[in-house]
């Protein structure tokens, strides 16, 4: 067998891919990302046994399952989870969003917040810590924190609440000391009060019937999930999230996700800290 011809992505191919990826995801690669994008494209061209960008692009563009696009999105975006990731959204929650929500609440009415996918629990626990530390009115309201994932192994991990150094690296040290116990193996155990403040449940967002029971939420954190869905699943998921929210309720997406590629169901709300989406009242 001959040695494979080294693949390279031409300028025009890069631009063609860039326009397509932007249309599908809303993610726009600047010219300075060229190396990053080319390298990952070449990896996928080889992994799918294609011999050129041209063949690969035809497959990507016309594949009905959308699987290859999902693969690409996966490697073109950084999907990791750690405490206080994308903290500006939590700041927006305590500085702006919750204050707007409570204007519509009776004092006895709980505030319901939903985190999904909860993954190994960093996001819902971050929310709990953030509310306790930074929302001045936290003692005036009952807050229900529900966290869901499709993956039961992840849910079990989340319930246990044990994290490695990398997961907690962005937490201010006083909060780490306050809410965690350092274990001998170098990991950190989240305290029982926090563990008991989050309700973990298993859900499948594409299952309209199951999701029918999830409702009356005031805020949903659904970060870095919808971007990985194919067009139809994403559409159904958007419907279920809309159903789950109270009128006037808010939804936060991940920083690389844009509602402009998902659904027109929600209003755009600009707060000082972030753009957040709202179910019309």
């Amino acid at each position: 067998m001959n040695a494979p011809v080294p693949l390279a992505i031409t300028e025009e191919e890069f631009q063609k891919f860039r326009d397509f990826f932007y249309r599908k995801t809303g993610i726009h690669f600047e010219e300075n990302k060229r190396y990053f994008v080319d390298k990952r494209l070449i990896d996928r061209i080889l992994a799918t046994n294609n011999t050129s960008f041209r063949n690969y692009f035809v497959m990507l563009r016309f594949e009905t399952s959308g699987k290859e696009l999902q693969q690409l999105i996966n490697i073109m975006t950084v999907n990791e989870t750690y405490f206080f990731r994308e903290e500006y959204q939590f700041t927006c929650l305590v500085n702006s969003v919750l204050n707007e929500i409570v204007t519509r609440k009776r004092p006895s009415e709980p505030i319901r917040i939903w985190s999904l996918p909860s993954s190994s629990g960093e996001e819902p626990y971050s929310l709990a810590i953030y509310l306790l530390e930074y929302w001045p009115r936290v003692d005036d309201y009952a807050i229900e924190l529900i966290a869901s994932d499709i993956d039961t192994t992840m849910l079990e991990k989340a319930r246990q609440g044990r994290y490695d150094q990398r997961s907690v690296a962005h937490l201010p040290p006083p909060l780490l000391r306050k809410y965690f116990t350092a274990l001998y193996d170098g990991s950190y155990q989240i305290n029982d009060d926090l563990r008991q403040s989050v309700d973990f449940t298993q859900v499948n967002l594409s299952d309209l019937a199951q999701m029918r029971a999830y409702r009356d939420f005031d805020v949903v954190f659904c970060r870095n999930l919808l971007i990985y869905f194919d067009d139809t699943s994403r559409r159904i998921a958007a419907e279920t999230l809309f159903n789950a929210l109270n009128p006037g309720g808010f939804i936060c997406l991940g920083h690389s996700e844009s509602m402009s590629r998902i659904t027109p169901l929600f209003k755009v709300r600009k707060f000082p800290e972030a753009i957040i989406y709202q179910k019309p009242r």
Partner: peptide, 27 residues
């Protein structure tokens, strides 16, 4: 790339002029 994204950008950054198509997805 569509009206919805246009609105997001318009709310995030100040512009001196918008040039707007009619038929676009999402908005």
């Amino acid at each position: 790339g569509n009206g919805y994204e246009g609105l997001e950008k318009a709310l995030t950054e100040a512009f001196d002029l918008y040039i707007v198509d009619i038929n676009m997805p999402k908005m």
